[in-house]
Design a protein around this nucleic acid. Sequence first.
DNA 1: TTCAAACAAAATCTCGAAATTTCGGAAAAA
DNA 2: TTTTTCCGAAATTTCGAGATTTTGTTTGAA
Lengths: 229, 229
Amino acid sequence: MAGQDADIFDDMRHRLITGEFGYGSKLRAEKLREDYNCSASTVREVLFRLSTVGLVEFQEQRGFRAPHQSLERQHDLTQMRIMLESEGACLSIRLGGVEWESRLTAAHHKLSHIEMRVRSSGDVIPLLGLWSRAEQEFHETLIDACDSKLLKRTHQVIYEQFRQQLVSAETNYGYFPENIREHQAILDAALERNEDLMRVRVHDHLARNLIKPLPQKSQPAAVGRSSAM
Amino acid sequence: MAGQDADIFDDMRHRLITGEFGYGSKLRAEKLREDYNCSASTVREVLFRLSTVGLVEFQEQRGFRAPHQSLERQHDLTQMRIMLESEGACLSIRLGGVEWESRLTAAHHKLSHIEMRVRSSGDVIPLLGLWSRAEQEFHETLIDACDSKLLKRTHQVIYEQFRQQLVSAETNYGYFPENIREHQAILDAALERNEDLMRVRVHDHLARNLIKPLPQKSQPAAVGRSSAM
DNA sequence: TTCAAACAAAATCTCGAAATTTCGGAAAAA
DNA sequence: TTTTTCCGAAATTTCGAGATTTTGTTTGAA
């Protein structure tokens, strides 16, 4: 039934978010077609659609790439998340009912449970997939009671790009204790229905990413030969 | 040089924004190809790229359409504009210098001049193109000194969709006197560098669109929900 | 050696046709 | 009449090859 497009799209999205392709690496339709046993044109279409949601960059006459990792981009995405989640959470406080509260509590409980396991084991990697999904669900539930479909869709798009920017695992996982505390603080603000407090806490939670999280070398000037696959 | 794609893209965008196609009307690659003397596949690609910026809706296995006009969409777009322009304008106040002030003043002057002509002639239609461009430039300059490329790009995308939603001329042109006053008020807040005042005035200027501007029948319940996902 | 033009290889874009899916109306059943 | 099923037409998706453009290397002159 559903065109094979849809399957390829979903799979490619997953591969992109989990960072299977290196930052800035080329995505060649002719290569990718082999993975899906279809024509290059079909892959090309999927890549176009992925560029729709910012997971792939397209440049006229020079093809598709996985986005580069850059401080500027990280900064931008963070700023957008702060704006969208603050606004969305405040609207949710205003418009959401008990039902929203309980869904948020549930999402937090699940997330919290995983975070505890991470803390005690001391290693995030084995739980990274679980944790990622749980965090995403918590943040999406936070803004879910707001009355703007567009705001929610935009947030989802930004969130996925954000995740894509820091898949390089070891990144920010010295931060777990802070994460746990901050998620709790956000939940509390929601249950207290305190909008100003919510804005502050959402900001504090995300603003950590505004300060350069990667004490890395500047990216490889040589706009590298692909070698992507 | 640049692929013909680019030209077709620009032209189609223009046609969409100016409302040449009816709301919700189908966009068939096989028809459109005739306008551009190219193959259907090329048109198809352009349509995909236009769906990137929300000017076209795509649904698997059932093609492309110009977006439907709906109060919900109008509401969403307005809310997003308020958020983006408030934030962007405040950041600009914080980060922009005299150079920004002067560009904003210039943009306002141009806009103001056109608005006066409209008021005295009593008819917007002949100046609609000019006014549209001037208004867009004013609003884009307003947020231009902020430090987030992504915020500016997102605003541009939303703004174009917003415009597309109310091209049906007669719509909100009893509002000209208000428009003139409000644009002035926004400029003043910028020059005073008063962020709180700016938020209020941007909100007031745009919020008019939150109250149903179209005394229409309630929208057709059956919604061909769309947008790839 | 340095720079520029020319060439070769590779990647992207465009095309039209074939395969698949949806849409609309007619025929059959209730 | 109303509902369901089936069929043909129309629209969408997929394909692989040929045309165009970019990229990398070599050649030749300054």
